[in-house]
């Protein structure tokens, strides 16, 4: 078998430039967070953590952070809980309207978030759910469903069904088989889908801007509102914290499941 892990010099240069292009903004943001000036600038005259301390003086950022976490937790969990039966049904049974259901679940990928935001705004207010946690979760579930479903579907499709049959022949009921065999076997895909859904929900700005209220402001919305008023390095320090938390999460996930496995869905 031919091995493809040897890159030529040109490919190496390309990869390096590409990585630099992706990572540079993150590095710049993290550097700016350590500035001692009152405006966005690189820390040329010395490092300072004043803008990290400043976060604590802005409880609205901390509140928004926790709200985003709860929202992402709730939405990702609901999305995955819906994605599992949907994936099992579409992967295993042939029934009329199967393609339609998949297209329906995947459609949020193809609709601009602005449009979704406007649509959900009027939808939520007619339900009387404007600005409520339930309302936001419902909208985020719709938005992140494609991400959850894609990975769950990949693992359900790739699963060896004979293990389930074996469990049944050994006396396990449908539910026991699902709990003891199916779930553990598709767990990497489920976890991957959940993580992706969580990140997407946590990160979402455009649509949430339309449906959030002062009592339900997510972190991206909070940050957006902040920079429309003033541009100070507080935004950079908040971003740096998020980057840091994300990195920690990724490392933990990599240790437990292997990131490549998780995000490719195998």
């Amino acid at each position: 078998m031919k091995r493809y892990d040897k890159n030529g010099p040109l490919a190496l240069v390309f990869n390096f430039v590409f990585l630099l292009f992706i990572l540079a903004p993150l590095v710049v943001v993290c550097l700016v967070a350590f500035t001692d000036k009152g405006y966005l600038s690189l820390p040329r005259d010395g490092l300072s953590v004043r803008w990290f301390v400043a976060i604590l003086d802005h409880p609205e950022f901390v509140d928004a952070f926790w709200y985003s976490i709860y929202l992402a937790l709730g939405s990702a969990t609901v999305a995955v809980a819906l994605a599992i039966p949907a994936a099992m049904a579409t992967a295993r049974y042939k029934f009329p309207g199967r393609g339609l259901i998949m297209a329906f679940f995947m459609s949020p990928l193809m609709i601009p978030h602005v449009v979704l935001g406007v649509a959900f705004l009027s939808y939520l207010s007619s339900l009387g759910w404007s600005g409520t946690y339930i309302g936001l979760v419902a909208c985020h579930v719709v938005l992140i469903m494609p991400y959850a479903l894609r990975l769950v579907l990949a693992s359900v499709t790739g699963m060896d069904r004979s293990a389930e049959l074996a469990a049944k022949s050994l006396g396990a009921s449908k539910w026991t088989t699902f709990r003891r065999v199916t779930i553990p076997l598709i767990l990497p895909g489920v976890t991957g889908g959940w993580v992706l859904a969580f990140i997407t929900s946590f990160d979402e700005l455009t649509m949430t801007l339309f449906i959030a209220s002062p009592s339900s402001t997510t972190l991206p919305v909070r940050m957006y509102q902040h920079i429309t008023e003033t541009i100070d390095p507080l935004i950079a320090s908040v971003s740096a914290v998020i980057i840091f938390i994300t990195m920690i999460m990724m490392i933990i996930l990599d240790r437990i499941f292997g990131l490549d496995k998780l995000l490719v869905g195998k």
Partner: peptide, 20 residues
Amino acid sequence: VSPNARDIGIVFQSYALFPH
């Protein structure tokens, strides 16, 4: 009768062991 009530032992071609 459903398979879990038949009291039959099966060895599959792919073994179908529970990997976890």
